[in-house]
Design a protein around this nucleic acid. Structure first.
Lengths: 219, 219
DNA sequence: CCGGGAGTCAACCTTTCGGTTGATCCCCGG
DNA sequence: CCGGGGATCAACCGAAAGGTTGACTCCCGG
């Protein structure tokens, strides 16, 4: 059979160069094209298809700088007809990242610090229609199906976001037109679900799990 | 003159491969050796010196996984006799990271998403004994000399970082072996300097101004 | 139609936090 | 040599947050 053609999507030139060097060094893998962001990835994908050189797998980072993030890009790609498998290759393995990627239709979730051979295996596996998950990603998904009751409600996430901006309970209450008592009730629920016992720990936990965006971080 | 020899220090195989491919592609730059952590970097440096092949510049990531971080490694290198210039190449540009690197004796501070040509320029500049700063790093240092009164002390930044992990005053006190009263005193000073009046707002403000990294992000 | 989860609110109590005042120690620089 | 800033600690008080119990509404699904 022919080579597995890969479309690289990563905003860091250094990482793209590294993946290009690493993957082309493997037997049976070649780089079809590269893209620095989601829009460029979709454009490249369309271009390659018209050339009859559709990639066998898309290797996608989740953090793509300004613009479309990797989850959105993945969802867009999976909406196409006969979409290629998308293998996520990123730096972080937070709950929200993993779940968002899987929900967007990713075929796998690998970390950038994985050894080269695991990376090669994952690419080949995804290209063949299989699945490749980093240990933590696999553990998370299994834990989710056995223990589904611990996720935050939309309202709780909303209050969490306000909490992270540094507002007091009273200020939050005024912001969303409820009483301070209700805010406290929600916070108690949030603390319980996150396994913490104060607001700063809740912010840290929620940020770590990417339930909320870091205060002041660029979109 | 001969080629500029670079010692690469980065814990990610993908990034090392990328930098190797990118830099060796440039005229006048070659890779002398690579290291995945601080200890290995010092060892490689010593080895190269005994061979009479001392590198002209060390390209150093700040996040080096388990063990010695990039700041410590930089300081160690700069303590040697006739130390090579150390150019920091990392992912984040928080105030704390930049200042720590400069204080450790770094010759420059660049970000990994910099375009290849800027990277090449920075390496050559550092190797020639010059300085190379990313825009935000340069802006920070200039702002420091023109406006030195309102900055947080290192101790205050340290407590702020612990604060952002969700620790209580008592827990912070135990962590750094001081009394809870002292923690409270520091926090009052921090609140004053940041213009806030509670701990969550301090985290939000400090994150926004990049005095600290987002809570929970890897270091 | 009934149970349950989500959202709302109140009253109560304990703990933590925020703010102040005042004090000691050390080190650096004029 | 003396001032000042940084770091340390103590005692105090009021305000805010944490935790519990209980209750009401709404809506969705079995």
């Amino acid at each position: 059979m022919g080579e597995v053609r890969v479309l690289l999507v990563d905003d860091h030139p250094v990482v793209r160069a590294g993946l290009r060097a690493m993957l082309t060094g493997f037997e049976g893998i070649s780089i079809a094209a590269e893209a620095a962001d989601g829009a460029a990835a979709l454009k490249e994908l369309a271009r390659l298809r018209t050339l009859g050189e559709a990639p066998d797998v898309v290797l996608m980072d989740l953090q793509l700088g300004d613009g479309m993030d990797g989850v959105t890009a993945t969802a867009q790609i999976r909406k196409l007809a006969a979409p290629p498998p998308v293998l996520i290759l990123t730096t972080y393995d937070t709950d929200a990242d993993i779940l968002a990627a899987v929900e967007a239709g990713a075929s796998g979730y690998m970390l950038k610090d994985a050894p080269p051979d695991q990376l090669r295996q994952a690419v080949l596996q995804a290209a063949a229609g299989g699945t490749a998950l980093a240990p933590r990603a696999a553990a998370l998904l299994m834990e989710r199906i056995s223990n589904p009751g611990t996720s935050l409600t939309p309202r709780e996430v909303q209050l969490l976001e306000l909490l992270a901006t540094g507002l007091s309970n009273r200020a939050i209450a005024r912001q969303v037109f409820i009483s301070e008592a209700t805010v406290k009730t929600h916070l108690v629920h949030i603390y319980g679900k996150l396994g913490v016992d104060n607001r700063t720990a809740a912010i840290a936990a929620a940020t770590q799990r990417r339930i909320i965006r870091a205060p002041g971080s660029k979109g």
